[in-house]
Design a protein around this nucleic acid. Structure first.
Lengths: 150, 150
DNA sequence: AAAAATTAGTTGGTTGTTTAACTATCTGTG
DNA sequence: CACAGATAGTTAAACAACCAACTAATTTTT
């Protein structure tokens, strides 16, 4: 099974490269925030992106969307709350849940930061076609499914 | 520039999927360690993989190879040291550096854990060809370069 | 309707990451 | 040689991730 080993080896390099891209995106964005005196970490921004799309959703939903633990969300929302960007409200329909809403400040930040994100991802996809990305995504999805069901 | 926006949107989905794969690999490996009563985190294992290939290297080299900060390495090596897997030795040639060596226990662990890693990456690459991975890696590399030089 | 199982969120503890400031050592240029 | 700058590693503090155990509320089972 020399071929399987070679493939496994390549899969290792592949995941290493994934980390590199993630780190690069992270670094770029953090720097943008710092330059503009926006006190927002990469993790907080991930949560804010969800909320800019639609707020008034549960912490667990945010956890699912950001691929984070619900414990992390408790913590992150505390920190976003401290910064005056979000508020917690008890869900009247299900009193176990808490709904997270943007404050005005949080919404205003979105108007500033969303263009930066657009810009970053446009930059990242220069000289890469939609088809290429689609093909890659199929492969990555296959790998995810392999590990999940394995 | 509707097309550029569409591409940026896809780049977002793309990076989200990358994170999902990384998380899945991480989860799978952590579980394997736990099942076998190996007290090793994903981060520690990243360092150990480097050392199993070649030990007696500097902390900074380990930082570069694992894409981590040298501060994280100080911390990680402390923890690996506590677990009796590695030792620090001053480099006689350059007294600023410290060389990290595997202990016998650390080396033995490699013999147990390396097959698990092989297995995991073989699993991940089922029904994915080398060519496909190479193509994906080219695209990811292009994106990394875009962001780096941007 | 009562008991059991599930779900949402919090808390505590350990581990990891990042920035900035710091010490010690080495290197290169004048 | 001297000294400015670079490099290796550490420390402290803030932020984040993950697990286990917990509370409270809801849903399912019996």
């Amino acid at each position: 099974m020399a071929k399987a080993n070679q493939k496994a080896q390549m899969a290792r390099q592949f995941t290493h490269l994934l980390l590199e891209l993630r780190d690069e995106l992270r670094r770029h964005l953090q720097q943008k925030f710092r330059e503009n005196n926006v006190s927002l970490t990469y993790e907080m921004h991930q949560v804010m992106v969800c909320l800019w799309t639609k707020d008034g959703i549960r912490q667990q939903d945010l956890a699912d969307k950001t691929l984070k633990d619900k414990t992390s969300l408790t913590y992150l929302i505390d920190n976003l709350n401290k910064r005056g960007l979000v508020t917690r409200m008890e869900d009247k329909k299900d009193r176990r849940s808490k709904l997270i809403f943007l404050t005005n400040k949080g919404r205003e930040l979105g108007k500033i930061a969303e263009p930066w994100l657009e810009e970053l991802y446009k930059l990242a996809s220069i000289k890469v076609t939609i088809t290429e990305m689609e093909e890659s995504m199929k492969i990555i999805q296959k790998m995810i499914d392999n590990v999940k069901t394995g």
